[in-house]
Design a binder for these strands. Sequence first.
DNA 1: GGGCCGAGCCAC
DNA 2: AAACGTGGCTCGGCCC
Length: 598
Amino acid sequence: METETEVKYNFIQTNQDLTRVLGEIEKESIISVDTEGSAYNPYEAKLLLLQIATKDNAFVIDCGQVDISPLKPVLEANRPIKIIQNAKYDYSLLKVQAGITLGNLFDTMLAERILTCGISREISLKTLAEKYLGQKIDKSIREDFSNPRNPALRGKFTKVQLDYAASDAIVLREIFEQQYRQLRGEGLIETAKLEFATVPAVAEMEIRGSLIDKEKWRSHISELGKKRDQINKEIQDDIRHLAPYTQVDLFGKESDTVNLDSPLQLLGVFKKLGENLPNTSEAILQKTKHPLAKKLLEYRAYEKMITSFGESILEKISPITGRLHPDFLQLGADTGRFACNNPNLQQIPADSGFRSCFIATPGYKLITADYSQIELRIMAEVSEDPAFLKAFKEDLDLHSLTASQMFRVPLEKVNKDKRFQAKSINFGLMYGRGPVSLSNQIGLSVDESKKLLDVYFASYKKVKRWLDDVGRSAIRNGGVRTLGGRRRLFSLPDRSHPDYDKLMSAIERQGKNMPIQGTSADITKYALAYIHNEFKDRKLDAYLIHTVHDEIVAEAREDIVDQVAVLIEEMMVKAGEKLLKKVPVKVDIHVSNCWEKG
DNA sequence: GGGCCGAGCCAC
DNA sequence: AAACGTGGCTCGGCCC
């Protein structure tokens, strides 16, 4: 259908031909790189092709026939810069299958995310080629490589496959040129450098993965299962007199149990019990006096644990490594935070026995390191509020101090209740929280909560001013930035939009939150990059394995673990101090056999 | 039987 | 249910 310009490249099938490639790319300051593997998972994938493009030449290397190790020094060196789309994939594939660790990357996928953060998530190579070159790319050719019957897996490539492989590398140059100009013009070079430096750290985390104590995990699930079944039985006994229910099986038989996971069925049961509920959400159930509501909440808590964190996570353990290798999405959130999936290790319950099943490799220990109150420290930094700054400089308990000021009682007279209320406000601020939602958490009326907020802002005038300013600037400028320079754009709704006010206030809240959450993400990423570089430069038997927003988990051989823990702490503090100048940075470190905070 | 979506709920 | 920010996973339920 579409017209395609002839793709010019050299197909490299012998070691002798590779010498020519090497000679040519050694002179370059920038090259484009792409790889084709037979699977997404670097442990399962066979490295099929390595494509390298210079400004006016391109090479497609048949990795089945050619030993690519002569390219190792060039690919690992700082020069030339390697332009790559989704460099984490190529880094991992080359590391696992060829022992090559790519150095000095420019990732066009991450660059696009940085440039369009908040207004687009279209970052595929297909999209970029169209956007920057007006060129159409057919991705179905590449997908062929994952088919075990594809002759390409035995080194028999069609011309079309090779053409596409070459053009994938060739188009990167023009995308890079344009993206680079934009990044510079929009003050986003620092953010781009940070993201690119973070790529190897992230790839290494995924490659190393986490070891799980399966026996312990299973026995934990089975304990939870017993408790869930007990509650389910109690509930079914309680409501059996209401049967038969409306649901029927394939043979027309009426069921005598209710599916507690079906909101529809539950509403029916509550109706028979004389409770007309709008839905079965947690909020509604909490306000429903009938004892069934309470039991149901208990059932749900167990059910959630079992279904979300039970066997399904064990199924993701790699048969090759025996470990979990989740997909860390470096720019998963518009604030710059990571997201994580397959499985999402950022939502493992904090206190229910699952985390202690993440264990160190025999002969190693785990280091769990997290920033202490990093978001509130960022709030102090950006607002320059004297009371906030003082609290952190003097290492005081900020929440108690807040309570003391708000309620005008001496510090030692602050009780748990008052501290909790102060803490709720301190954290709520960062979400743009209002009196209604605050009242629900702390059990006061909306009016009382409103007064509390007024008192709070009277004590912390500069916090109030900063929040108001940044909320307004989100709307005026259509975007906000972190201390690291990262930007999030907002698409403002049309004035005629039916939900105009609602959407605008949501943007204000997002505008208030982004500099805080995003600066925290900046700091964690600097830390990951620093730590990765130290491990690499010092050739330490130590590995990053996990990160959860303000937390970094690593493992190190037992005999060096204490040194490595100190190193991690130093690097995390260094990263924090890069962006926080007015407030001290504090890191809590814990060394143990499993994933746990001290 | 797969895709999509909302409800509900886990993390920070 | 929410005038509390950022995500992902599982389920029921609906659609094609």
